[in-house]
Design a protein around this nucleic acid. Sequence first.
RNA 1: CGGGAUAUAGCUCAGUUUGGUAGAGCACCUGCUUUGGGAGCAGGGGGUCGUAGGUUCAAAUCCUGCUAUCCCGACCA
Length: 567
Amino acid sequence: MRQSESFIPTLKELGADAIIPSHRLMLRAGLVRQVASGIFSFLPLGYKVLKVIMDILRREIDAIGGQEFFLPALNPIEIWQQTGRVEAMGDVMFHIKNREGLVLAPTHEEIITYHARQHLKSYRDLPQIWYQIQTKFRNEPRPKSGVLRGRQFFMKDAYSMDATWEGLDVSYQKHYEAYKKIFDSCNLKFFIVGASSGAMGGRQSQEFMIESDAGEDNCVICYACGYAANLEVASSNAHPSGRESTNLPIEEFPTPDARTIDDLIEKYNLLEERLAKSVVYIIDSQPVLIMMRGNDELNESKLQGVFGTGNFRPALPEELLVSSGANAGSIGPVGLKTKMKVIADNRLKDANGLVSGANRDGFHNKNIDFSRDCTIDGYYDLRTVCEGESCSNCGAPIRIVKAIELGHIFKLGTKYSEALGATFLDAHGNENPLIMGSYGIGVERIMAAFIEQHHDEKGIIWKKPLLPFHVHLLGINVPKFDDVTKACVDAYSELKKQGFDVLYDDRNENPGVKFNDADLIGIPVQVIIGRKNLDAGNIEIKIRETGERKVIQKSDLTDEIRKFYID
RNA sequence: CGGGAUAUAGCUCAGUUUGGUAGAGCACCUGCUUUGGGAGCAGGGGGUCGUAGGUUCAAAUCCUGCUAUCCCGACCA
């Protein structure tokens, strides 16, 4: 492609609106343009790379037996009502205004299950893996970070239908392996985390993440052993408080000016590890007292896991007073005004010598022994892990990083097949709901994530196979000098003949413009042909990633390029 | 939905405090020069100052409503 005839609108400067590197570079290199908040046009160069990503997705999902569909973005709302997701999605789903009963699909579980119901009637029809690479529409409350969170975006979405739970495990594992190949193919440094199954139900869920400050998820990572988990489910080797040798009788003492854990530590010279913080939640309409150590933070995802419900909230101040007899800051497990369930974090298991509220405003108890003085209905991992704690796997200090979610794989189970009546007959003639899995990847996110990981101050650094062209041929002072122009045209056609995709900068621009644009666009190899070297029969090759320059003989060009791409 | 900010030429922005002829750089067009890291000179085209109202002899500028966009938070299958 001749650059003089191409639409590659690079930008020298950019406003302050775009913050993160991938967003800025995608705009500056002429890959995308924003049309409205969260809505982007892909320009030819950007779309070219996007198609490469889609090809990789197709290749790997086809390889595990996936069959590609093209599904409608316009969906009848009835089918969404049957699964209860019109309410569940709420404002996230776009509703068509001038045609009753149509919505824009934010995802495609419903439509896939609809077709499965039509035709998958026997265990002999299973398993199936169906997928699509299509636009999804979501009315995000706050689109951000360029294409990372948009209102319209491409998703590779795959669904598996199995006759048995063991079959689902197999389908799930196939996707797990395929996803690793996909992200490896894209040269992404990624990690996989166990994720909360959340409100979707289902048995297992894993997320494919890349570390990035632009990310919206927090993940625990151990660089020593590779342990990684979403903060929602992560654990660590935080030391339990344990038992002290002296076990004095419980004793109330006045603490009129202490309402927080830090107050107690500072004003009463107490150790954090001997402090038991009380948190009251209303879970399924019942108050529950939750004991956490010191300043440990309660992890609501873990709480949801323990109680198997998302129907909970912190208690209101008046509810605290009614159930415990005291206000926040003076609540504890001993002497509660009303009987309520009491659970505690594992870190406080069977501990003694503890200080906690006395359920009388302005008083605390000391020398509390959890196994002597109160009934703990259960010990669970309830705390949010902190930076620097030791890894539960290898003991090295863990880090907490922000991460971008590129993909998730999910064992859906029978939620959708039951709701929509997608059943099959098993070998015994019994009717069963299809057992489903759902596997998504954000296509634009792969591109943005790649750029986040592969750029420098000058621009993008593409790497095979994610690249818009193999070679950027820079004609220095063309079309002015006929011999330089001829050498460029010769190199251009020779490289094309060898099967390389070449962007030939034949524009009548200053050399500086061409060099800077080339570094910005980031094609891996630049071939620079100019007066300086051509008089000696030489041309120059520059490797974008390393900046390495090599002056070679003109006749060696295709060999050098081939070597670069084969190595 | 809460908090903050912004809206002026294709792009990046000044001008708004203190009301009085619409500005710069880049980009674009013409000509000449230049040519290995975002060139120089000369000439030229281009704006209903987000939008609707109000105040005023006069509004980009002051006042009110609305809209859009960005950032932080909430939310996020």
